[in-house]
Design a protein around this nucleic acid. Sequence first.
DNA 1: AAAATAATTTAGGATAAGCTAAATATTATT
DNA 2: AATAATATTTAGCTTATCCTAAATTATTTT
Lengths: 224, 224
Amino acid sequence: MRATLTHAIEDYLKIIYDLSVIDAWVSTSQIAKALEVKPASVTGMIQKLAAVTPPLVEYRKHYGVILTPEGERVALEIIRHHRLLETFLHETLGFDWDAVHAEADRLEHVISEEFEERIAQVLGDPTHDPHGDPIPDRDLQMPVHATTCLSELRVGQQARIERVRNDNCELLRYLSERGLLPGVEISILDYSPFDDNLYLQVQGRPESIVLGPRITGQIFVELK
Amino acid sequence: MRATLTHAIEDYLKIIYDLSVIDAWVSTSQIAKALEVKPASVTGMIQKLAAVTPPLVEYRKHYGVILTPEGERVALEIIRHHRLLETFLHETLGFDWDAVHAEADRLEHVISEEFEERIAQVLGDPTHDPHGDPIPDRDLQMPVHATTCLSELRVGQQARIERVRNDNCELLRYLSERGLLPGVEISILDYSPFDDNLYLQVQGRPESIVLGPRITGQIFVELK
DNA sequence: AAAATAATTTAGGATAAGCTAAATATTATT
DNA sequence: AATAATATTTAGCTTATCCTAAATTATTTT
């Protein structure tokens, strides 16, 4: 079934996005703590988010979730709402510093695209909210074509790297040293079900690269 | 048990208030039609509204409901939110006249008292919304609804449009395209008793406008 | 590598607000 | 006053999102 984006779902996606700054894979208990609900409730919800069409998260039992491109698109939309609202409440309506957050948290789920555009215009298309957080811009939403993550690929498949969703400098250096950058074409050599490691090769390079499950879930690719 | 004011409850109270303009006692089916839910659902909800502490409606089986003072207080609070929001969306954010209603319908349940006060202040404590409906004031006094509606006028009479009591976007656009807005002066050209249509003209415009009986009962005017 | 601890999932309920179908009350027509 | 037509209510289901308690899986300590 196609997803109806309830407030609760939007809250989950937003929190998952926020938590995935450190590690794109986010655990049940992290989400539970952030949303102030019980872990069992989180399990129920993320199973739903993964089952919906198109899936909003990828879910691995006892491990965690990662946003799909579609999930991230929705998360960014809500975050744009939130940060524009905070800015608007503070700048235009004169709300205090500490009051804007709670108000924006309720309004973000309810405003239309027209409302969003009009306050953006009134504010002169700001790039940062009053806390200094960046406001995703209107069309920074994900590319339209369907992408999968590396961990979904089978041995023998070929793909082109689309993007790497991670802030971790070390990881990014590790990848770039091996030529694993957006745009590059790769093929899957082998997969170890024991430790979930993926062996792959960059087109035109001799050596094989091993990637663990934590990383393969963060690299999005376009199938060939 | 003490009432938790959900969005649904607020919608019921608001609609009951609106419907009680004609008769303070409002029937199940009137509410069902206005809210676009089934009569059985209305019965369930109004039984709850009557059972809560303090009761929000008085309920008589097979007869209808009437708002209690507490129910009316809540209804007026929501209506104040709604009408302030409509005014704000139109005046401050530049929304079209006919687009404000849908947006306000969602926002009204979600804004804080602080938000309410700040937009009221920005607008200079307005007494009427862009449709001409009175905005209940901060201490929630009853607005006075004593005006005549268009359908009561005779051929040759002149009047000033006071307010249009309707949610239908298409209708509102239809009216605004013809310059039929609150504040505008009109005169009645003709009336057809066969189909109950009213022919009228906006002061300073050449063309005549035809309105059916469904509409003329919803446009309130002040006689000249 | 076994036991202890922690995290996660499953199973089974609770509540809010909607629905349909059947039962009952009210009102209108003959 | 009996019947027909309407309106309303009851009973029982559905979906969304939460909960608790018990079962399971993962991780850490010894």
